[in-house]
């Protein structure tokens, strides 16, 4: 068998194993921790009868392993149970919100990825001169401010003072694509800023790393221009690390989305999760945690697979 294929199969298997263990961890984190789940949902003043009822409803009287297996098989069949707070099916509400979140993350990625790669190339081209310094200065600043504050700063200056974009990102199915894009302009800008810095820095580092190879020196001695060297020689050889960076940042995007959605009251997964954490609605939190973890693990897995496939030594064994 081709070594690359074998590695890919191994990596997929590892991803699935990881996902399984994460589901155990999430379940354990909410069920086996010290303290009574029913008590913490109802608060200290709950009557013993109410506690007993809730325990029965949550199935807390059965052993943890049984409950876990029930939950897991349900989740595999797309049934994530019902929310404690309003009795609605979690899968249904989650599905709609997941779509919205993906819509937001998708557009953020569409803007951020090409921009980051372009700016990374630019920083390498003008290394140690002002464009490079400017870019790394802005990067440092945007890493130092939490996402939600970037959100409010943009909302204040762009949304309210200049009135260029709506400061609340409500979308619904009746809106056209253009209207939707206008509504999510600010959240997309925030997410872009958040991942751009990191992605750009790592693109820059990846290309600089390649730039130290002997064949770059050869190209330089041949008299090629700096941009041609970067574009024709350095860039193709740094695709694997760059794809890796992009994937890691997309994974990060999925998490950043949680906070940004709350800031702009966007009807997505993140807001759903945060709302139900404060309501102590454990089944919803578990389900959201599982979905977020699955997306995160999935993207990391794709990153690894791409870097395996982009290595010609593994693709064409001797």
């Amino acid at each position: 068998m081709v070594p690359a294929l074998k590695l890919v199969v191994q990596r997929v298997a590892l991803g699935l194993l990881l996902l399984f263990l994460v589901s155990v961890l999430i379940f354990a984190g909410t069920q086996i921790l010290p303290g009574d789940v029913a008590q913490s949902i109802l608060g200290q003043s709950a009557t013993p009868e109410a506690l007993a009822n809730l325990r029965a409803e949550l199935g807390l009287n059965e052993p943890a392993v049984t409950r876990y297996l029930d939950w897991l098989f349900g989740a595999l069949q797309g049934d994530l149970g019902t929310a404690l707070t309003n009795g609605a099916s979690i899968s249904e509400s989650l599905g709609r919100r997941l779509g919205n979140t993906m819509f937001l993350a998708f557009w953020a990625a569409v803007v951020a990825v090409p921009l980051a790669i372009f700016l990374g190339l630019l920083a390498v081209r003008y290394r140690d001169r002002w464009p490079d310094k400017l870019i790394s200065g802005v990067t440092l600043a945007s890493i130092s401010i939490p996402e939600f504050l970037i959100g409010y700063v943009l909302m204040y200056f762009v949304g309210v003072k200049l009135g260029l974009a709506p400061s609340v990102a409500m979308i619904n199915d009746t809106m056209s694509l253009g209207q939707k894009l206008h509504a999510i302009a600010l959240p997309v800008a925030v997410l872009t800023l958040v991942v751009l810095a990191h992605m750009m820095r790592m693109t820059r580092a990846a290309i600089l790393n390649v730039m130290q190879s002997a064949y770059i020196e050869t190209a330089e001695l041949k008299g090629l221009s700096m941009f041609t060297i970067i574009w024709r020689h350095a860039f193709p050889n740094s695709i694997a690390p760059i794809v890796n960076v992009v994937m890691l940042n997309l994974a990060y995007l999925v998490v950043g989305v949680v906070v940004v959605e709350v800031v702009f009251t966007y009807p997505g997964m993140g807001q759903y999760l945060v709302d139900h954490v404060s309501k102590r609605d454990v089944p919803v939190v578990q389900a959201c945690g599982l979905v977020f973890a699955a997306v995160y693990i999935g993207l990391n897995m794709i990153a690894d697979i791409v870097s395996i496939l982009s290595n010609p030594r593994l693709r064409h064994p001797k």
Binding site: L18, G29, V255, R280, G289, A293
Partner: peptide, 18 residues
């Protein structure tokens, strides 16, 4: 394993019962 879940998500999951 712990690092394969984003910390914010894991913290939210834990804080929902603590």
């Amino acid at each position: 394993l712990l690092m394969s879940i984003p910390s914010l998500i894991f913290a939210l999951v834990v804080l929902s019962v603590m």
